[in-house]
Design a protein around this nucleic acid. Structure first.
Length: 570
RNA sequence: UGGGGCGUAGCCAAGCGGUAAGGCACGGGAAUUUGGAUCCCGCAUUCGAAGGUUCGAAUCCUUCCGCCCCAGCCA
């Protein structure tokens, strides 16, 4: 019932919106915004927020703006602006002509700051950063009032203008709100509103040398854009009184309301900008779009679809409790999506030569194969079959364990869309134990589609024809981080997430063989390699050298049985 | 330590005084030319704990316990 696109239960934010609409608050308008700071790449945690904001707007006949919160030029960059725009669009959202920047409002914000000064609600403070910290007090002790707190309006006006004029060095003065130095909420102890900062802004260049702080800028940005519900994450809960203070003190009508929800955490990966940056900058991964990262660009390169990501975000729910979503749920979402639409192909990751000894040497048959059993409209294709094939090394076992349905001496197995074969022998390198090739006979009556194919055989294998297969590189990805318990076992609890990194998060296979229909497969196209998983053609792929990224493996019950058996020994 | 939040299954999460939805994971089975997909079945006598109110409490009250966030001129 609750599959793709079906209803999810109403979350607490929707409830607030429902009540506001009922009460005709904001004249029934619903206007949201996604307000990233352009200081990093978007990740799936942002996707949760994007889906929430744009989704809520759509559901309620409202609008959602894209707005860059670019109030700190020392950390922000045009590169990030471009990537964020690209990612939000790729996820499938549309902000119409409502692309905004906090920096668009610097002039207005400055004017409102002057109003605050005139109201006696803001003052220029000459304390150093260290002194301000000292004066702020602590959790148990109230703060002390700044000696500059009671300057006259005229003096404040004059000093603030001169701050803006560039007459003072960076860090020498700030504009502060005059609220309450003994508030139990530290955010209300005369917070800084403006700081002097000489840094070239990505959009306004060197026009300004003072920049508003988030707590002052954000409520105003929301107000300027007619935002009704300003959704942010839990850590801003303590800032809400300040958000409201700015709007109320300035006496702005229909003030937006801030609502907080829990950010997304995922198992087996990292989500903080700091950690992602460390991985990228210190070369633990290949870049922001490394397919192992939970960045939008990484997921895109890995082969995740926007639909799967959106579906995931819609299904994890929205609440206020700190939670960690199992990454396997994300994997479920991409499997569910790709199962329905990824064409099936055959690709052998670890090739093992298989000779059909009773099959003519000079014949090539074209085997008819369904492109997608979940979608008959996907049609069929022909796959060449011949005497010499390659199968998966795993699919042959000299002395098979219990419940092994694959090829073993004397065993019969079906080759997908071809014939039933029987293992008659194999060649083994006695020194290394390596199986060099497997010899089989085929049953000519068992060709797929023919009555003789109806026989029951336990296993079905995928294969490629040696003479026709294409060489390919396949990149197998695994979780970026080990499970918490594995880490404890293997290296004794490290505090640094670096020693939690999975050493096997990337395995590159260079000798894979895929069916010839894959020639010229376009970067970004996705396939199911039957019995193996879903794969996506990497942008590095060329017509000479195919490169596939494994998006996610198929569910593998044999693998589970195998592991269970292994663990049983003890 | 003062303030702000949050505790429902291994993980998310509904529930809003009338007797614990759903999904993931997990276990079992059916069917199967992907050990995939699909389909069945199972999976909280109990909601952080203890008291109280009530005919009736995950929902209301009290106390306690645990976890997260806050002392940037970051957002």
């Amino acid at each position: 019932m609750d599959s793709i696109g079906s209803k999810t239960s109403v979350n607490f934010i929707q409830e607030i919106i429902d009540n506001d609409k009922k009460a005709n608050k904001y004249n029934g308008r619903v206007h949201l915004r996604f307000p990233p700071e352009p200081n990093g790449y978007l990740h799936i945690g942002h996707a949760k927020s994007i889906c929430l904001n744009f989704g809520l707007a759509a559901k309620n006949g409202g609008l959602c703006n894209l707005r860059f919160d670019d109030t700190n030029p020392s950390k922000e960059d045009m590169e990030y602006i471009d990537s964020i725009i690209n990612d939000v669009r790729w996820l499938g959202f549309n902000w119409g002509d409502r692309l905004f920047y906090a920096s668009d409002y610097f002039e207005k914000m400055y004017e409102y700051a002057i109003s605050l000064i005139k109201l006696g609600k803001a003052y220029v403070c000459d304390l150093s950063p260290e002194e301000i910290k000292e004066y702020r007090g602590s959790f148990k002790e109230p703060g002390k009032e700044s000696p500059y707190r009671n300057r006259s309006v005229e003096e404040n006006l004059d000093l603030f203008r001169r701050m803006q004029n560039g007459e003072f060095p960076d860090g020498s003065r700030v504009l502060r709100a005059k609220i309450d130095m003994s508030s139990p909420n530290l955010n209300m102890r005369d917070p800084v509103l403006y700081r002097i900062l000489r840094a070239t802004h990505p959009r306004t260049g060197d026009k300004w040398c003072i920049y508003p702080m988030y707590d002052y800028a954000h409520p105003l940005e929301d107000y300027f854009e007619g935002i009704t519900h300003s959704i942010c994450t839990l850590e801003f809960e303590d800032h809400r009184p300040l958000y409201e203070w700015v709007l109320n003190t300035l006496n702005l009508p229909d003030p937006p309301q801030q609502i907080e929800f829990a950010r997304l955490n995922l198992t087996n990966t990292v989500m903080s900008k700091r950690k992602l940056r460390k991985l990228v900058e210190e070369g633990y991964v290949s870049g922001w779009d490394d397919p192992r990262l939970p960045t939008i660009s990484g997921l895109r390169r890995r082969g995740y679809t926007p639909e799967a990501i959106r579906n995931f975000c819609d299904r994890i729910g929205v609440s206020k409790s700190n939670s960690v979503v199992d990454i396997r749920f994300l994997e479920h979402c991409i499997r569910e999506d790709l199962n329905l639409r990824a064409p099936r192909v055959m690709g052998v990751l670890h090739p093992l030569k298989l000779v059909i000894v009773n099959y003519p040497e000079d014949i090539v048959e074209e085997m008819e194969s369904e492109n997608n059993p979940e979608d008959s409209a996907a049609g069929t294709r022909k796959i060449p079959f011949s005497r010499i094939l390659y199968i998966e090394q795993d699919d042959f076992c000299e002395s098979p364990p219990k419940k092994y349905f694959r090829l073993a001496p004397g065993n019969e197995v079906r080759l997908k869309n071809a014939y039933i074969i029987k293992c008659e022998g194999f060649i083994k390198d006695e020194k290394t134990g390596e199986i060099k090739e497997v010899h089989c006979t085929y049953d000519p009556e068992s060709k797929s589609g023919k009555p003789g194919a109806k026989r029951k055989v336990k296993g079905t294998l995928h294969w490629v024809s040696a003479a026709h297969a294409l060489e390919a590189e396949v990149r197998l990805y695994d979780y970026l981080l080990l499970d918490q318990n594995e880490v404890a076992e293997e290296q004794g609890e490290g505090k640094d997430f670096i020693n939690q990194l999975n050493p096997n998060s990337l395995e590159v296979l260079t000798n894979c063989l895929v069916e010839p229909s894959l020639a010229g497969a376009a970067p970004g196209s996705r396939y199911q390699f039957m019995r193996k998983g879903y794969f996506c053609v990497d942008p590095d792929s060329t017509s000479d050298k195919l490169i596939f990224n494994r998006i996610v493996s198929l569910r593998d019950t044999w693998d589970k049985i195998r592991k269970a058996n292994k663990n049983q020994k003890f």
